[in-house]
């Protein structure tokens, strides 16, 4: 299955919260191997997670 960026961005998000199906994982991996924009979005989603984790430890 070939993904669009729109579909890939959703799968990136879902994949941060649950284990994707084998076919979704393969499709996403293939898409990310070819798409710079979606790699950026994935890195930005992961950064936001780190930022929110750091937010709860502020002024610790």
């Amino acid at each position: 299955m070939k993904l669009t960026c729109k579909e890939a961005s959703r799968l990136i998000s879902v994949g941060l919260d649950t284990k994707l199906s084998l076919s979704d994982r393969a499709a996403l991996r293939l898409h990310l191997a070819l798409c710079d924009a979606c790699n950026k979005v994935k890195a930005q989603f992961q950064f936001m997670r780190r930022a929110l984790s750091a937010y709860t430890k502020l002024d610790d």
């Binding site: 669009t4 710079d36 930005q44 950064f47």
Partner: peptide, 13 residues
């Protein structure tokens, strides 16, 4: 289904 404008990179996040 592909980006109109690719997301800008974030410098030194």
């Amino acid at each position: 289904g592909h980006y109109i404008e690719p997301p800008a990179p974030w410098a030194n996040p």
